[in-house]
Design a protein around this nucleic acid. Structure first.
Lengths: 137, 137
DNA sequence: TTCCATGCAAAGGGTTTGCACTCTC
DNA sequence: GAGAGTGCAAACCCTTTGCATGGAA
């Protein structure tokens, strides 16, 4: 199937060996923009490749991040969320449900960023809009 | 000492029993704006009250958060950072050193916040400016 | 054949819990 | 004396590590 081939080539182009395990994890995450925890990825990957181990999934997620295929999100200290949308964007996080949604780039504008002290350089600006389900009454 | 009295009263006013342990933890955190992990608070609190237990410190930190005396910060998934500056403000986080600094309120301006879906209400907007120590060469 | 990747199980770090004891009001 | 707070140790969850096996270039 040509879609698998493109995933194969995407891993290869990123400098990774496209193993069965990495392809299974890629199928789970890289087809479309998703937000998933490592355990969710593990469960979904096992539906595709039954024997895949937890260590391989955790390690592969880090490898994907290192190669720019994923981004890590820290929303609540419970578990790291992996975001397969690698374009610049921000997030809306629902405190009550744990749902994460993307805010398209360009929608949020930030001004007034401080001058950085000597010897520092900007890495990125993270914005999390935290919302809750509205209280009744 | 009058400063301890005010701390005592601050806890009382927040609806908490001002116990010895809570006062010791308050001395560590609530005198001035600080950013500390739970383990750092534990170590500093034990300098004031040798026998204080880990469970008490972790529990008290949560109680302080619940009563609005502290705010939790998630910078890197390593450990929760407690911020005793409860005014609206944002943060600069040094990826390399782990240092956290406050950005005064009003300095950063955010525009273009999205309309919230039905049944949602805004809780807060967190902005983390991530910086790194500049590379040589 | 050399290196990279995988799997297993055990360890690790931060945090929470269960339960009995102690204190405050 | 009732309820809140504390302490200890064990449990917990997410994640990482060590090491031997297996596969790719």
């Amino acid at each position: 199937m040509e879609t698998s081939t493109s995933l194969y080539e995407r891993l290869h182009a990123a400098g990774m060996l496209p193993t069965l395990q990495r392809l299974a994890i890629g199928e789970v995450l890289l087809r479309r923009p998703v937000h998933m925890t490592a355990e969710q990825v593990l469960a979904a990957a096992r539906e595709r490749l039954a024997g895949i181990s937890r260590a391989t999934v955790y390690g592969t997620l880090q490898t994907f991040v290192r190669h720019g295929l994923l981004r890590e999100l820290l929303m609540d200290g419970e578990a790291t969320i992996y975001d397969s949308n690698t374009h610049a964007h921000h997030h809306v996080y629902n405190i009550d449900t744990g749902e994460v949604h993307d805010l398209p780039p360009g929608q949020l504008q930030v001004s007034g960023l401080p001058a950085l002290a000597e010897g520092l350089e900007m890495a990125e600006v993270d914005i999390i809009v935290r919302v809750r389900s509205r209280q009744l009454g």
